[in-house]
Design a protein around this nucleic acid. Structure first.
Lengths: 350, 350
DNA sequence: TTGAAAGCGCTAACAG
DNA sequence: CTGTTAGCGCTTTCAA
């Protein structure tokens, strides 16, 4: 157990050596030539005393804190932020780093976000992770650039900072392909109305995937509403009511799980049973919804954990000079969105 | 904008004074007698150069890092952890502190949790917040005691550490009272099967509140299942099927929102309309569920944000010698669980 | 009203 | 193979 009150000098005295020797053996300095007995002695004594180096002093001396700053948007709203933090924390911990987490609001002023960064800089973090809660373009505080940084789940408007984002198109493609594979030919898309990359990319992947399957993707029905439960409900009502039964969609691809939840309600009201009368696939894999709807929702998972881990890993590489982030900054890194199969897709009725 | 590369000496030189003077004016040292012109000069120069003190060096010297460790269980599972972090972060930020966040698993070994604490201690955090994801008794790593600490959402098995927890009884009482106020007399409780304080306390408050209203609380129907959607569904099925209509409950108090979600499904299957045929009240206020069920769920909110803020606030007070935590350790501090009114309660049918 | 200098705990050049 | 020492950037005692 680490004991705050004892320092390297105490260890040196107790082991009957100099602090240099202690430092050398504990840090396993390559060029240090120290006898095995001395090594053992030092290690034993350090262990006995419960010595742990004062990371502050270490940092002051080496100009390396082993701390990463993580500024995260809207930490309290969804578990998404938690997944990013978890991924980053585990990757960081594995390499001896820790995270200073600061919350910011997606709608916070540039100055307040700048102040957050400044606080991190004053603490001499080795690098900064900047995480947003959904994939979009962000305007970054100028002081972010003064230390290695990587963006999680967004790309910078300037575009010259390393970023890791989800593969929206691949995810949408996987969702639609799952529907096609089940035999569906009339597939509708319940899209979001926000002007964010996901809206555009999921839509274009939706159409493209249908086209590639020999269907008319451009004619496929799309209804757009705000990406909440209520929006999903309304979009689904419109889509499922406007046509006569013959060309009504037999399957729905929903922009996210919340909209899918709304679609479930619309289907219930219209007497449509899921998945027998209507197959549904969502996006996001929000456990609370996806796993708990009845029937459980097949959906596409966003790689929040993976993005957090990727970002921490590469940030640390950069800090340690093992990677050049500016090279990676040219194009965002894209991480896959796997399909999570549950029970909301089946073959269409004949 | 804070500029890492310039230090107090640079400011001193640029202002034509000594570092002592700079330190004195920037820290507003009370006993320092410095002429207004010098003060202004120093401040202006510091501002111009974008000087911000190196917090590491400051910490090394003052033995105060201005950092709090937050070890949080299962950060990625629910937004609960996020709310605690947010509360703690905002309270901390307001007083110039920052948070080092470390994730731990509720099921992690004592040693691994001890290692997490040790990492925090090596970083010389001024205090530690230990947050669990639901209210229970935890066995704490022994090294936690070596620095001021407070427990969030749990009490220690030893029981001698300051803790802040939700008012389970008050929350349950508020829920049942809302049902009573709407005119219900036959109220059932869908309880959790886990042996945690919430299970016991919500149950006893349920019974007590009914008794105080002149009903027979001890005879009131209770069904217990694991506190997930499926459990809620099964408990509700049992409760709503076993009796003849005349003494079937007209209202259900659910252990949490997830169980309430299951109860919604059971009600739908049984042809019971909410709230007309059956009023429901939940617990937790998990936005994603509560606000999105149809009809929206009236529920009781857990004060995660408030507990996080309270904990940070009092921890900082202790660190700064403004409070004696050991006094507060005698009894946990209990924070209210307010009722969040939505649309799932109405008067019973005549 | 201001400044010199010690020292927080550590690492790393350099000396032996 | 091991030890001496300077110095990371800051606060604070003491002296002027």
């Amino acid at each position: 157990m680490s004991n705050k009150n004892i320092n390297i000098k105490d260890v040196a005295v107790a082991a009957g050596v100099s602090v240099t020797t202690v430092s050398h053996v504990l840090n396993e300095v390559s060029y240090a030539r120290i006898s095995p007995k001395t090594r053992d002695k030092v290690r034993t004594v350090a262990e006995e005393l419960g010595y742990g180096p004062n990371r502050l002093a270490q940092a002051l001396r080496t100009q390396r804190t082993g701390m990463l700053g993580l500024v995260s948007e809207d930490i309290a709203t969804t578990p998404h932020a938690g997944r990013i933090i978890l991924g980053a924390d585990e990757a960081a911990k594995a390499r001896g780093y820790n995270l200073i987490v600061i919350n910011t609001s997606g709608s916070a002023s540039l100055e307040s976000r700048q102040a957050d960064i400044a606080a991190l800089l004053d603490r001499r973090v080795d690098g900064i992770l900047y995480a947003t809660m959904y994939h979009r373009n962000v305007e970054l505080p100028a002081n972010l650039g003064s230390v290695p940084s990587v963006l999680v789940d967004s790309v910078a408007t300037g575009g010259n900072i390393t970023a890791v984002i989800p593969d929206e198109e691949g995810g949408a493609r996987a969702a639609v392909e799952a529907l096609l594979a089940a035999g569906h030919r009339r597939i509708g898309f319940l899209n979001n109305t926000d002007d964010v990359p996901a809206t555009r990319q999921r839509l274009s992947a939706f159409r493209a995937t249908l086209n590639e399957a020999g269907l008319d993707g451009d004619a496929a029905p799309v209804e757009s509403e705000p990406s909440e439960v209520q929006g999903g409900y309304e979009a689904a009502r419109r889509m499922l009511s406007r046509k006569d039964r013959a060309d009504m969609p037999t399957a729905l691809f929903c922009y996210n799980d919340r909209m899918a939840m709304g679609a479930y309600r619309a289907a219930a009201e219209l007497g449509l049973s899921i998945p027998d009368d209507l197959s549904i696939v969502g996006f996001d894999d929000q456990e609370l919804i996806a796993a708990n709807l009845y029937p459980a929702l097949t959906t596409v998972a966003l790689p929040h954990y993976e993005m957090g881990a990727w970002a921490a890993e590469h940030l640390i590489d950069a800090v340690e000079g093992k990677t050049d982030l500016s090279l990676m900054a040219l194009h965002p890194t894209i991480l896959g969105c796997p399909l999570v199969v549950r029970d909301s897709i089946t073959a269409p009725r004949q």
